[in-house]
Every structure is written in structure tokens, then in C-alpha cells.
Simulated scan of single mutants.
Amino acid sequence: MSLDTAATKPHERLATELATEMEAVNGLIRERMASEHAPRIPEVTAHLVEAGGKRLRPMMTLAAAKMCGYDGPYHVHLAATVEFIHTATLLHDDVVDESSQRRGRPTANLLWDNTSSVLVGDYLFARSFQLMVETGSLRVLDILANASATIAEGEVLQLTAASNLATTEAIYLQVVRGKTAALFSAAMEVGGVIAGVSEDRVKALYAYGDALGVAFQIVDDLLDYRGTDATGKNVGDDFRERKLTLPVIKAVAMADAEERAFWERTIAKGKQASGDLETAMAILARHDTLEATRVEALAWSEKAKAALAPLPDHPIRSMLVELADYVVARIS
């Protein structure tokens, strides 16, 4: 999901506040994505890294470190690490999803091939671990290594859960916490760890990132059914791709026999026909699951804001509060 062009853009204010640090991060990313022997690596990586993403995750690491008073050099390494992990997962995701477009541009697997995307993703994961080690912190290595494993676990869980009508809201949340929230929370957490703050503040940073990541993904899933192109994908893509997201999971739980048969045919078996999306939308409306999903996204945004309470009074903290509001602004 991308952050759209609303009037208030806290991520842009964060970018201005962290401009010097982000310049250093971008320089380190360019330096470390180089390869002496395999020019395909910087070609593929540059296509995605330079595609104009918001760099939200590395900014969160820099924001956490700066808010907590860190004045050393390693927050830059950690921010670059987070971006490499994120970019690696995008390269792999586009292969798994057979995607042809990312951030409005052709995907790497379309321009090159699946093999290049997978192997360059592997290279970026390896580079990310080299950067982690350079901080000299085993705690940081532990957090980011666990996050990387959790992301992969979430993606594999989604493979089995995506079209299974037995998927519960708890399993959905586990997938979201894996594939999206894990990197948000780790990005915040390592910023506090490198700054040497107290354990309660480290936990607060983790809790903020986790809740923000969950809200972020729920909003993305909701907008797929809300008649907007703000997500950069067509309305109903998740339905056509047989992805059980929160609005549908809620509807399946309340389905009568006829509705369940519809979900069984279209999602579980993938036998979709003309007019099925409209039928799905009507069922969601009948059970008001889009509104229920909206309420959950707003609740996670509130959890994110509440988590910031133990952290230092700092302009960046205010921006993080605004960011939590902004993530859900389009559904408020």
C-alpha cells in the first residue's frame, strides 16, 4: 500500500526532519547494492530501490533512534538494513504473486525474469545481515533476524490460509503480523536498542510499529473493496486472486448456506464468473463487514498512538502520532 496525496503528510514531514540521515542511508544503500562480479544485481536492485517509494520503514528506524537521543553512526546502517530486507521481500513477493506492476512500474521479474528476482532478493538479504553485524550488537542481530524469519513464516502461512474458508481472524492477524507488521515493529525497536533506552521504551517502540503495521495492512485490504484506486491496484483484485482478507473472513463467519456455497465456489475453488464480484460486494454490504473492518483498522491506529506514551516528548513523537492517524485517514 502507498500513502496517498492527502493534505496532511506526516511521512513527508518525517522525511524533512530526517533528510540528512536519509541521504546517508541512500548513499549506503547505493554502495552496498553494488556487485563487482554480477552487474545484474545493481540493475535489478536499482530498479526497485530508485522507484520512488516512501522509505517509510528505514525512516522509522531513524526516527526512533533520533527521538531516543542516539548520536552514533549505526542507525544509518540499521535503516539501510531494514530497506534491504523490505526490498528483498518485494522482489520475492512479485515472483510468488506473478505481479507485473509495482509502484506504477513494471516489476523486476517482468523486466528480467523470476530467477534474477529471487537471486537478487537473496543477495539483499545477505547484504542486510552484513550491515547488521557491523553494528556490533547481538540484540539488534537477534531482532532483525527474528523479523526476517517471521516475514517468511507469514508469507508461507498466507499460501495455505489465503483461499481456505477455515481461515479465522486470528490466523489473518498472524499473517498480517508476519508479512507486514514484523518489519515495522523491528524497524522501530532497533532504533531504541541502538540508542540504549530503557526496556519499557524499547517495548513501546515495538508496540507502536506492530500496531501501525496491522492498521496499515487492514486499510490496504479494506480499500480493495471500497471503490478507490488509492492502493495502486484494481478494486476487487483480492477477490479475483482468491485472497481471504478481513472483510471476507468476517462475511464467511456469518454466511448462510447459500452464501457459503458462493464463497466455496469463488474463493476456495476459484471458479469465478461474470458478476461474482458484485455478488461478493452485496454479501459484504449485507453483513456490514466493510464497516466492521474499518472499525478494527481505526482501533489499531489508536493502539499505535497509545503505545508512544512512555517515549520522550519530542517533535518526532508528534509526527509518529500523526502518521498513525494518516495511515487510516482514507477510511476515517
Rank of each mutant, 00 (worst) to 15 (best):
M1F: 10
D4M: 11
R13I: 11
L14S: 14
N26S: 12
L28S: 12
R32Y: 00
M33G: 02
A34K: 11
A34L: 09
E36T: 12
H37L: 12
H37A: 08
A38E: 08
I41D: 01
V44Q: 00
V44F: 04
L48F: 11
P58F: 12
T61W: 05
L62P: 02
A64H: 00
P73E: 11
Y74E: 13
H77K: 09
E83C: 03
T87Q: 10
L90Q: 05
V96E: 11
D97G: 10
N109H: 00
D113P: 04
V118C: 12
L119F: 15
L119R: 03
L119T: 09
V120S: 08
L124P: 10
L131A: 12
M132P: 08
V133Y: 07
L138P: 00
V140P: 03
L144T: 09
I151H: 01
A152G: 10
E153H: 12
E155V: 13
E155H: 07
V156W: 01
V156A: 13
L159K: 09
T160L: 11
T160C: 02
L165R: 06
T167Y: 12
T167L: 07
G178D: 02
K179E: 08
A187M: 09
M188E: 05
V190D: 05
V193Y: 03
V197W: 04
V197L: 09
D200M: 03
D200T: 14
Y206A: 09
Y208V: 13
D210I: 08
I218P: 04
L223I: 04
D224L: 07
T228Y: 01
T231S: 05
G236P: 03
K243E: 03
K243S: 01
L244H: 07
M254Y: 05
A257C: 04
A261T: 14
W263D: 08
R265D: 06
G270I: 11
A273C: 10
I283G: 03
A285W: 01
R286C: 00
D288G: 02
T289S: 12
L290M: 13
E291F: 04
E296V: 09
L298G: 01
K305L: 00
K305V: 10
L308H: 10
L323C: 08
